[in-house]
Design a protein around this nucleic acid. Structure first.
Lengths: 223, 223
DNA sequence: AATCCTAATGACCCGCAGGTCATCAAACGC
DNA sequence: GCGTTTGATGACCTGCGGGTCATTAGGATT
């Protein structure tokens, strides 16, 4: 997944017509598939295209994955779950104000997901959720719920410390994440439509600023 | 579009095998298509299913629409554009504080779009945007830009009146709308996953409250 | 009632893409 | 080198669904 692009296409000049590369294939296939899925959506993605991107043929794909849907699942599983795990490590060891923790988490999320190819995954999963309920359930359990739990702990910390006013934590979490997810969906939808685009960094900053003001405890109450 | 459901299915017992209903067909087709598209997405929707829902056969669809994509376009066009027009009328005639105007607009939006079948359209368009750039452009021009313009005027009003602090208006608009759009996408993706769901009304209220606190002018500066 | 017009039908066509498999040839062991 | 294993191929199969069209029949006109 996280390998540099186009691992397989180069280097076949004058070598044998193909090479045995059993170990490297799955990652290369998932890498190529992620690009295709994000670009065109699940249904519109042709396995033959994925195969070409991965430097193999369609038949080879079926040596490693039993179906198109299995590729889809593997891509989601392998690419996103590690990010969540990383976030959990971050929160576990944190000392400091809740404000700063939240700001750090949001910015970290933006750097590792929002700005990368991974930002396409939420859109992908949500778009296909009704056609692949099992995948949606998996994603919801392994990513959404764990992610919420993560940010929920930070917000609860802020309430406990008196930094934030009393809040419905689950709702507050959704409110914190909604603009982030929204923007990452946006990136893969309408960017081509308004070519000027907008300053996403500034948007995230504005969101953080506004949100933290909005949930701050009445003035002077912070510890 | 806005007709009550299942207009065509009933009333065929003992009548003739079919009736000529040239005037009613397009609306019934779009109505059925909206349901199918929202339920399954564009690619996974079979025209035969849409036809069945509309009480006709596939061949008949092609008397009224030249292609599946044309149905898609018509659905989006006919269902959403009127909502925008309605909003423009609302803002034009409004007298009162910017806070109240924004709260009214958001709640109105939620009632007419968020709570209805129309909430599926943003998801649909965004999911298919890369496969149908023309449609995406149309939607962006006729809905997104006009919608932003609308809310932008309300926010600018608040700044001018000293209710809100100085803001980058385009960003502030996106920030206001992101949670709304996000929730309407959510409704059509993960609802099946967490069956408890969450109180959307409360979410919108929390968002409005937090947002308005967050952008409020420093205390006591309002006129 | 006979006629015509056309809305509606449903059997059909066909291209496309998911999936299969007999065959080939890398590369490993001896 | 030589046989064997097995990763990789690409021609092939097949079902599905978008799109077509000759035919049928509703219902308006006379």
């Amino acid at each position: 997944m996280s390998t540099p692009r186009q691992t397989a296409k180069t280097g076949q000049r004058h070598g044998p017509r193909w090479r045995r590369r059993k170990d490297a294939r799955p990652a290369e296939i998932m890498d190529a598939a992620l690009d295709s899925f994000v670009e065109r959506g699940f249904a519109a993605t042709k396995l033959e295209d994925v195969a070409r991107r991965a430097g193999i043929t369609k038949g080879t794909m079926y040596l490693y994955f039993p179906s198109k849907e299995a590729v889809f699942q593997a891509v989601v599983r392998e690419s996103i779950v590690p990010v969540i795990a990383e976030g959990e490590a971050l929160v576990a060891g944190y000392q400091g104000s809740a404000r700063d923790l939240i700001a750090l988490m949001v910015r970290r999320w933006w750097e590792t997901v929002g700005e990368s190819r991974l930002s396409g995954i939420p859109k992908l999963v949500m778009a296909e959720a009704s056609n692949f309920p099992e995948l949606a359930k998996f994603y919801h359990r392994e990513v959404v719920e764990r992610g919420r739990e993560l940010f929920g702990r930070a917000i609860q910390l802020g309430i406990d410390r008196g930094e934030f006013r009393t809040l419905d934590v689950p709702l507050a979490v959704r409110l914190l994440l909604a603009p982030l997810v929204f923007v990452s969906i946006w990136k893969h939808s309408f960017v081509r439509c308004d070519p000027r685009g907008f300053d996403v960094r500034a948007f995230v900053d504005l969101h953080l600023d506004t949100y933290l003001r909005g949930i701050a405890a009445p003035s002077g109450a912070a510890s």
